[in-house]
Design a protein around this nucleic acid. Structure first.
Lengths: 235, 235
DNA sequence: ACCTGAACACCGTTCAAGT
DNA sequence: ACCTGAACACCGTTCAAGT
């Protein structure tokens, strides 16, 4: 936890788009999606709403910029130079996004909103590029680049979002509860489903307990990677 | 387009949770996500806000119920009995969701919100079950059920959402524009990206033009299916 | 060019009161 | 048990006015 913000805030430096975005990210991290309002943002920045609107068109653009800033940071990770193999490269990018979503739970919903409402914005190319480079390096034929890259991209974002929800769910259970405890409760709920309507889900519920999320996440990536590396069946 | 709603509405039958949800879906389809407000909902249902709150806890629950209703309808499709193979079964479920998202564009964002904010709600098991049954029928070892099913689920939802965004994008371009025109404009924008930062995306941009979305969507599924059917590399 | 802050239109939700 | 509708707290956004 960071040190408490002083009651009265003097503006440290001139207002700028960057400072507004940084404040937005901090607010999202601290107070969640519903905590980001122009009222508290103006308070934190010691200014009026009009000043913010001078630098940013509206709330949507602000959310998009906050998302882009965090994603840019996340996909930039290749700790210690280039990866051993393209497969390792995909895993590194995937884990970078996985961790970013875990640290900024609002990112999951926001990423989904960006991809589905504004897929031609800056966020999609950023993720697409960092995964696609590895796909190309894997020797996938050019005609399959887009398909392979988006299959990986969609899985990574979806699975990472699911994981973030588990973190949040555990937090909601109480300060003492950990993730295993939460997954147990979900698993228990799924085992209560109607046996006629949900036979598979009931049978699979047990697998949720005690597995490592990170390991499971990477296992899913390996599924896709092995399908991408092998030639798909001719149509 | 349906016949115009008469200016003055008399309540046809008693208010019920079902009628409220149906009105919400209709409103979302017609006016989009921002069009669903309690004001216009009370107007359409010829009632007051208190009456709605008697049947529904809050707006979030209403959105969840609307999403669940449409999803239940979408995954129920197995036209003409059982599929020829489990692989065909997966494709059928996937296309059911693909079409549902195309018909109800708000579903994409809403599905993402449900999966990431409330993954233990009724929506996730519904999709998980319908895909998982096919996975089990494919002879995937039980230890891989969860991983394989969620890899497929996340890809389907992500790619379908992307497609819905393309439909919306084309619509936003103007009434005369079709999807190909819109994809051309996205492709052109991506080709303008910085060559140093986005070499892969620029090279892949051309693949976006003139491909069939449905075919591309199914190709992605085949990638995952072929990875799921083959045993993954031992860890 | 950049910022102020009161004002506006609108939203989800509540609740005392009715039937 | 179910519904009414005025009222409340709060939100994003605008804009005339300042520097």
């Amino acid at each position: 936890m960071a040190t408490r913000t002083p009651r009265t805030r003097r503006r440290a430096e001139a207002l700028s788009r960057e400072r507004i975005i940084a404040a937005a990210v901090e607010l999202l991290d601290t107070a969640g999606e519903s905590g980001l309002t122009f009222r508290v943002l103006t308070e934190r920045l010691a200014t009026g709403p009009g000043a913010i609107y001078w630098h940013v068109a509206n709330k949507g653009e602000l959310l998009g910029a906050a998302t882009d800033a965090v994603v840019a940071d996340a996909v930039a990770v290749t700790p210690g130079g280039s990866p051993d193999s393209p497969q390792e490269g995909v895993r590194a990018v995937a884990l970078g996004l996985f961790d970013a979503i875990e640290q900024h739970p609002w990112l999951a919903t926001q990423l989904a909103a960006q991809l589905s409402r504004n897929p031609w914005g800056p966020v999609t190319p950023r993720i697409f590029e960092s995964i696609g480079r590895q796909v190309r390096a894997m020797g996938v034929p050019e005609s399959d680049w887009t398909t392979a890259t988006s299959a990986l991209m969609h899985y990574v974002l979806g699975a990472a979002a699911q994981n973030a929800a588990n973190v949040e769910g555990a937090r909601a259970l109480g300060p003492g509860a950990d993730r295993a405890e939460f997954l147990d409760s979900v698993s228990a709920a799924w085992e209560e489903l109607d046996p006629d309507e949900y036979p598979f889900t009931r049978a699979a519920a047990d697998q949720m307990r005690g597995h490592d999320d990170r390991e499971q996440f990477l296992a899913g990536i390996d599924f896709i990677l092995s399908g991408v590396t092998a030639r798909p069946p001719a149509p």
